[in-house]
Nucleic acid binder design. Sequence first.
DNA 1: ATCATATAAGATAATATATGTCTTATATAA
DNA 2: TTATATAAGACATATATTATCTTATATGAT
Lengths: 149, 149
Amino acid sequence: MDIVRRNTDYAARLMVHLAKHYGNGPISTRTAAAEEQVPYQLACKLMQKLNNAKLVTSCMGPKGGFVLGAEPSKISLLEVVEVIQGPISMNRCVLNEDACSRKTICTVREKLIDLQKIITKGLAAITLDELTRRGRSNRNTGKRKRIKQ
Amino acid sequence: MDIVRRNTDYAARLMVHLAKHYGNGPISTRTAAAEEQVPYQLACKLMQKLNNAKLVTSCMGPKGGFVLGAEPSKISLLEVVEVIQGPISMNRCVLNEDACSRKTICTVREKLIDLQKIITKGLAAITLDELTRRGRSNRNTGKRKRIKQ
DNA sequence: ATCATATAAGATAATATATGTCTTATATAA
DNA sequence: TTATATAAGACATATATTATCTTATATGAT
């Protein structure tokens, strides 16, 4: 099992798609899902989660869709991960303080906590704008995309 | 989902138990399982896996059991993790090179690879002898309590 | 040789989690 | 008013993880 799960990967793609069109009005889930190769219905659910977490803003009705809730440089991969799959956890004794009575003396736990901090910091350092900048042609065929109107 | 899974935690406890009695002949799974609060039958399966990976050596028959395959200082938590739950993977595009066609230009992938290296190095740095040294009673590392047989 | 005790191995069951689909309701621009 | 979009949650499927059960086999001790 991967630390970053498939649904999170999907959501990240959708977010990056919105980031690429940031400032051009709402993008429909249908469009984003099609372009980023995400199953449409699933994309709807993911967008709902992202919306509830205020990572995106919804605009209902025709010509509606979603807009990023903040500038691409202000949204990190960590936020997407946590919204979609929950917090990163090395072990349940790290996530849940009550899981282990030995927590005050356990040296493993300390080290797992350190590792976990490194992971979350690493993911927090990856922002959406960064992901739009380089190497972000489509996973399709590498065909250039037209600018949305 | 935790990065270090429950079975891995169980296996780690069993290994630490063997480490604590290193040099005193084989320890039966029944004993180790009981002391470390691991379901017995499950412990058997875990020991089998550890045995196949040469992390422990089996001694059949009465007064038999398992012995560590190497000195406690030579066995790391990473080895236990990899034997029981397989390699740590940030994303499938990291584990499986064919998972994404964008891998040569993808900046996220590079960063995920870096993070993954940090995790594996961190786990590799934690050795069994270290885990026996402090935090005396090693029981109850925080998983569901369940004793069988 | 027989027996008691231990591991070996694999089938199977039970759970938990993740992923994907479907239906109905609601908002809104044109 | 209508077409198009999101909202929400039920439902279904797939996969992974954890746990148990059964039978076979090895071996030290009697």
